Structures are given as structure tokens and as C-alpha cells.
Computed example of a mutant assay.
Amino acid sequence: MPGTGAKASNIGDDIDRADRMFNRARLSGAQDPAVITWVGYDTPPTPVDIGGHLDPTNWDVADASNQKYADAGADALDKFQAGLRATHDGGPSYNTVVAHSYGTTLVGDAAAHGRTLDANAVALVASPGTTVDYASDLHLTGIPEDQTPKHVYVTTADHDPIQVAQALQPFGMDPQDNRFGATKFSSDPGQTDWTYLTKPAHSEYWDIVNGKPNKALVNLGDIIAGREPTAK
């Protein structure tokens, strides 16, 4: 699921990402995959953009550090995931929730604070935080609590400006921190210039350039297929 600035009217890019994850999941061995683009909550408005860069001094102005959007959407996500289980025909499905940016905050909120997210695994891409300090604080339906961190996957590109938010920790410990306890997977570093951190790097995880997919896309295909990430 997408994060800041996402809405039904600009869902095209997110559907393209879903198509790419579907294809990568099949290449990773998923027999009959399905990928759903879910935008069932009100997302924070888009952060201030200055010359192609996210301005860290305006992070709060953009309201992207406010947990109220995740709090308001958590129940909707939980009900949606539970509905997928209830309506599935045949043998048990392997369900993975993939979230980007503020969407990862919603996922964490929906899997904690007395709630349980009905999923076998979650993949947190460019996460500013999950509202908890440890992967073991998250709860996935049917996954033993001591095994949960093995089912929580995280990645952040080297040049992604989300690192500014991760340093500020608006939603708890940075999921990239080893103490958080999640399983890290690789991404391409992303575009850069003299500023090092650039806006394009925040959205390139699903890109295919000259026929070569971003390492993150390959790894997301593996995770969706129930495998460990293979691209290093």
C-alpha cells in the first residue's frame, strides 16, 4: 500500500508497481499470485518539494509525521486483510502486505496496540517508523510471537530522503536499526547528486531500468512468493 500523497485519483503508478510485483512473484515461484493495490485510508498530504528534493525542515508542515492518519486507517486495513482470509477458496493462501513510506506506519499501527494483522509477512519499504520500537511488538495472525521478526522485512535505499524521518523517529525506532529486529533486504541505492539524498530515490524501488529490475523489486517478488530475499 502507498503512503503520503496517495489517493484514488493518482493510483496509476501504484497499479504499475502491483503489476511488476505480480510478475516478479511468478518468477520467484508463486504458482497463482494476486496483487491488490489498497488505498483504503486517508493519507497525509504530499511533503513540500524544493527543486526535486524533500525539504526536511518542512516534514512537520506536510503533516507526514502525524500518526492520526495511521490511527484512523488501522481498523480498515485489519478488516480488509481479515476479509481476504474469509473469502479465500481452496487451501490456505500465503498473504504478504507490502507497504511504502507512510503506508508502513499504517501497517505497524494495524499490527500492534491490541490489534493483529491477518498476514503471513509484511515488507516495509522506506519506512519512517511503525509506531512500535521492535518487530517483536507486531502481531501477525497465526504467526507465533517469537517468530514474528522473521516475517517482517525492511529496506531503505542509500539515497532515500526518508532517512531524515528515520533519524527523527516520529513513529518509534527506525526499522532499519538492527535493534528493531526485522529482516533486511537489499535495494538499489537510488539516484543521487551533490545533496546525496534525492526525491527520486524514494520511489525507485519498483523501477526496471534497461531491462534490469531494482534489487528491491526482485526481493519483493521473493517475499510475496514466501521465499527469503535473493538479490544482494
Rank of each mutant, 00 (worst) to 15 (best):
P45D: 13
P56K: 01
Q147I: 12
H151I: 13
Q191R: 07
D19W: 10
A62K: 00
L27A: 12
I50T: 07
V125N: 00
N10G: 11
D32R: 11
G73T: 09
N95F: 13
T96Q: 00
A216Y: 05
Q147C: 11
N23T: 15
K184M: 02
D137P: 15
T57K: 05
V132I: 11
G129S: 08
G29P: 13
P189G: 04
F180G: 00
A126F: 08
G142D: 09
V97C: 01
P44S: 01
D109S: 14
G90L: 07
N219G: 03
P229M: 06
Y41S: 02
T116E: 09
R17F: 12
P200I: 10
N120S: 14
V35R: 01
G221I: 05
L54H: 06
P47Q: 01
S187Y: 03
A111H: 08
D75R: 09
P2C: 00
N23D: 13
D146M: 06
E204A: 08
V48I: 12
H202G: 03
Y69V: 08
P170M: 07
P56T: 04
A74L: 07
G142W: 10
R179H: 13
H53E: 02
H139K: 07
P144F: 05
Q169K: 07
G142T: 12
K7H: 14
Q31L: 11
P229D: 12
K7Q: 12
D158R: 15
G103Y: 13
R85S: 10
D133G: 15
A74M: 06
N95K: 05
E204R: 01
K184P: 15
A74Q: 02
D13P: 08
G12T: 15
T198Y: 04
V218S: 00
T105K: 01
D42A: 11
T43Q: 02
G40L: 03
P45F: 10
D158Q: 14
V35G: 05
F80W: 09
R17D: 10
N120Y: 13
Y205M: 01
W59N: 07
Q169C: 12
G172M: 03
V125H: 04
G73C: 06
T46A: 07
N10P: 10
L140F: 14
R24S: 08
L106H: 04
Q169D: 10
D60W: 08
L140E: 02
Q147D: 14
A25K: 08
